[in-house]
């Protein structure tokens, strides 16, 4: 074999190079024009937001800056004056929820309350809670319906509200490639909306359909914005990230009850600190025959159901 591979002699090298260069320039120009809508998207993301570190790595000063920025952005975009807190878990607290299915009548007030409390997008009528209307005599969700209508309760049905179960073994947290979601000491699974990359793997992993994705920028009229917000819960979410029920941590970590519980007219919902020996929730778990959803999956929910 030869050491010098023969190469074709190219005629009019410089002319061909010029033609190629012209076409390359044309192509690059067309590409820039094609992706020009990105300029609009870039305008919506400030440098400070782009560079922001993970929530758990922010110093107190950085957190203050971030929160001030978010409050200003809410004012600018939504015209609403809001206060965004940074509510941390209360030591010695483990929040647990229970629902009495004998009492729940499927009126859907909890769904509505969640929608308003958590500043969900109005157009899509988003909420963290879905209620299944189930035929009596089965626990098989396949027989249930989330799109029931008419007067409730119907005689042959019972109603099963489902929201984030705040699992002790949360599959959604395991799958996240960037640790944008994690479980806090009081048991609440949270999302850093400014760190989530929007891959939606957690949505695929959750067995309870607890997670929601912001397919569009949420729209909430200024007068309907709930101004009592928290960084890890109900502040208005950015587009393209995943969100979820946080047991209303902006309320519960301040000693209040979740909005869905307060809105429930039947008293079916019980919420509290399981580590508190005198709490109602503790009494229910000890004395009622409670069950959890999809126990066989080993997710260990902190959300219980029972019948009287």
């Amino acid at each position: 074999m030869t050491n010098h591979p023969s190469l074709p002699i190219i005629e009019n090298f410089s002319r061909r190079a010029a033609v190629k260069g012209a076409f390359a320039t044309l192509g690059a120009g067309a590409f820039v024009a094609a992706i020009s809508p990105l300029r609009q998207a870039a305008k919506n993301t400030t440098a400070a937001e782009f560079m922001q570190q993970h929530y758990t790595e922010l110093s107190p000063e950085q957190k203050d800056e971030v929160i001030a920025r978010l409050e200003a952005e809410t004012k600018e975009k939504y015209g609403a004056d809001v206060t965004i807190g940074d509510d941390r878990p209360i030591p010695g607290t483990k929040f647990v929820y229970a629902i009495n299915l004998s009492v729940c009548n499927g009126n859907g007030k909890c769904v509505e309350a969640c929608h308003q409390e958590n500043n969900h997008d109005r157009a899509t009528n988003q909420s963290y809670i879905r209620v299944l209307e189930m035929p009596k005599g089965t626990m098989d969700m396949e027989q249930g319906s989330t799109t029931y209508s008419g007067v409730v309760p119907k005689d042959d049905k019972f109603y099963l509200p489902v929201q984030c179960q705040q699992c002790d073994e949360p599959p959604c947290v395991d799958v996240c490639p960037v640790k944008a979601t994690w479980k806090e000491e009081d048991g609440i699974v949270v999302v850093d909306y400014n760190w989530c990359i929007g891959c939606r793997y957690c949505e695929a992993a959750c067995p309870y359909h607890a997670r929601r994705f912001n397919w569009k920028e949420p729209e909430v009229p200024a007068k309907e914005v709930n101004p009592d917000q928290s960084y890890l819960s109900n502040r208005i979410r950015p587009v393209g990230v995943v969100e979820k029920c946080t047991y209303c941590l902006h309320r519960t970590r301040r000693g209040k009850l979740p909005a869905c519980l307060e809105a429930c007219p039947t008293g079916a919902r019980v919420f509290g600190n399981i580590l508190d020996k005198d709490s109602n929730i503790r009494w229910i778990l000890q004395n009622k025959r409670v069950y959890i959803l999809k126990e066989e999956l080993g997710t260990k929910p902190a959300f219980f159901y029972y019948f009287d």
Binding site: W195, I197, N214
Partner: peptide
Amino acid sequence: DLGRPDRFWHM
């Protein structure tokens, strides 16, 4: 498929 391709660097 990413909702926030601008945050790709988080990965």
